[in-house]
Design a protein around this nucleic acid. Structure first.
Lengths: 353, 353
DNA sequence: ACTATATTCGGGTACGTTAACGTATATAAA
DNA sequence: TTTATATACGTTAACGTACCCGAATATAGT
């Protein structure tokens, strides 16, 4: 004897009301073919009326297919540990959805080797994943890659930096311009009219240099917009080893002794901190990203502010929205700008990266 | 003919290996009685070996019981819209888990009427929910309530402010002391040795005044810890209407004309902003919370910084961890301090409350 | 030895959905 | 008309777990 505790909703109920079998209901739900226009309409109407929402549990359970998502981000090098955070985000998301029939394949490339990026994209495409999470450091190569994805109808989500007009499912990351703008806003509180500000870009040409340029652009725009004198000096350092950096910095400081604020446009601020500490001057130092090294210098009082954009969350969110999209075809925000967080010595210990 | 695509794990496999029925395995898994020591041990061993993890989807699907969670927070009044955000968080979580067999019952109390709080707690207890999310504004009454919850073995999560040592499942909210400490840190960047700072507490006695005191404590502690002269004036305003506030403020400013920074210890900073704007002085104003009114004054440049702790997230997280706990008995962080976010004119539009 | 009761266990249905497979009917081609 | 072929739809096993119900066996009481 079957006890029917059946809800008043669900495919069964729809089928009952429409006087058809659940299979037919299923067909219109997934608009597969094999249903006459007439019955299709009838069923659709009932679905509407009942405001039917499928039971996600049952859906995933019954659907035998396991989804595969590939992730491609830089490996964290000994030069910067920045990419540890996104990796953690990926791993957290992985842990949460693996029990739901999703497999996450992680791929990495060397930020200094374009070829490694291209290689990995090839391997990924061969594996034919259902979705891709991508940190597109190399712009041109990424464009090529994402075009192929679109051909193959593989949805992809970008994190950390955007490729405009490339039809990604979503971009999740910073608004670089505004984060620079914010940096300048902070600086404006901290400087008098005589003080000079030094902008430091540390990056090999090969990196996604535009990242830094966007920030600098925002930074300068602030002073322009507020009609403030921008006593700004700028230095581009193209060798990312400690020695070159210190060498170049000391040159700048010899030539300018009225620098009050130093604004470093990326996470390599800790090396600058190292230099400034040895300099012994009382400067204000602003940089980017919640890295152990940086926090260390902030706790010591060498770094004053860090601007940060939750890299771990970016990756986590990216994977999750990919999952939501693939598993339940739920809508995804096309652009999700991360909040621009300001870290100081006094709130960094509460920060969630 | 049954096609068995059976995994190598799952109750079926355990049953097969142990040479028993799945019902018996189920008994062991939920350690219900009705299994001999012998077979119990045998099964347990196999479970261990296979490192069996139940399929959460199937588990929830098969479990007929729907969980009920009650939430109790202040209603948002016309004096402050602060509690709109937590309510949004509750609603978002509700939307996400309602399809998973969870019912969320929302209750509200008037922050100015203790009785309304007590009434609601009584009603909640009568409804015998499986879990409770609570914003415990009234300390003593909340203690009484949570004690009853413990007697009835109903787990509860606290948000916004903590009841120490009350055996809650979790506290999710600010670390008030540190948020005050951070405020002082910001102030220290913005003041010279001669400048005075005004602390403004706006709150009826009936509110959870300790909230403000904790912040003030942290604020003062900063100056002490850093051996800075604390040119601090403080004012307690016990009438929360605009008129009283302006009256009291103007008195203070008449008596002190060297005030440089104003630190308001809660979200009512917008009323102070209104006053300061009319005053026409170039002061630095720091306050709390991402409210429309406050953001308005920040955009106008009257409020310089807002400290904020994601009230929406607090409620969302609280409900979700309650759900995770009840549905899957997953572990819950006992204390989850929210990040202490710094908002300025330039990053507020990217903020996620 | 025979009933009464407790203990231990298996069979089987249900949760809500998917999808393979089969059947009936309509339409077109011979 | 017969046969092929597409179209429309229904039946049913399966996903992995929960738990009711009853059967088999053991133990105790007379």
């Amino acid at each position: 004897m079957k006890k029917q505790i059946t809800e008043l909703t669900g495919v069964k109920e729809i089928a009952r009301r429409a006087n058809v079998s659940i299979a037919t209901v299923d067909r219109v739900l997934h608009n597969r073919k094999g249903v006459s226009e007439q019955t299709k309409e009838k069923i659709s109407k009932i679905i509407e009326e009942l405001n039917y929402k499928p039971n996600l549990l049952a859906q995933r359970l019954a659907s035998r297919k396991t989804l595969r998502i590939a992730t491609l981000i830089p490996e964290s090098s000994n030069e910067t540990s920045f990419w540890e955070a996104p990796l953690q985000g990926i791993e957290q998301a992985d842990a949460e959805i693996k029990q739901l029939g999703i497999i996450v394949d992680k791929y990495f490339y060397d930020q200094n080797l374009i070829d490694s990026f291209v290689d990995q994209t090839r391997i990924i495409l061969e594996s034919k994943p259902d979705g891709i999470l991508l940190a597109p450091s190399f712009i041109e190569e990424s464009v090529v890659f994402t075009e192929k994805c679109r051909e193959l109808k593989i949805p992809y989500v970008l994190i950390d930096s955007d490729l405009p007009n490339q039809g990604s499912l979503s971009y999740i990351g910073p608004n670089l311009y505004h984060s620079g703008y914010l940096g300048a806003h902070l600086v404006s509180y901290l400087t008098g009219p005589e003080d000079k500000t030094l902008i430091v870009n540390i990056s090999r040409e090969i990196d996604n240099h535009h990242h830094l340029l966007k920030k600098e652009e925002g930074f300068r725009a602030y002073f322009k917009d507020h009609h403030k004198p921008d006593n700004i000096i700028k230095i581009d350092i193209r060798e990312t080893d400690l020695k070159s950096i210190e060498h170049q910095l000391s040159k700048v400081f010899e030539e300018n002794n009225d620098i009050k604020v130093v604004f470093v446009t990326n996470s390599r601020v800790s090396t600058v901190a190292h230099f400034i500490e040895s300099l012994g001057k009382d400067l204000i130092l602003i940089g980017y990203d919640f890295l152990k090294e940086n926090i260390g210098y902030m706790d010591k009082g060498v770094i004053d502010f860090l601007v940060c954009q939750k890299p771990k969350q970016q990756a986590y969110r990216g994977l999750m929205s990919l999952y939501q999209h693939l598993a339940f075809s739920s809508p995804v925000e096309k652009i999700y700008f991360m909040p621009i967080d300001i870290l100081t010595k006094e709130n960094s210990s509460f920060y969630r990266n």
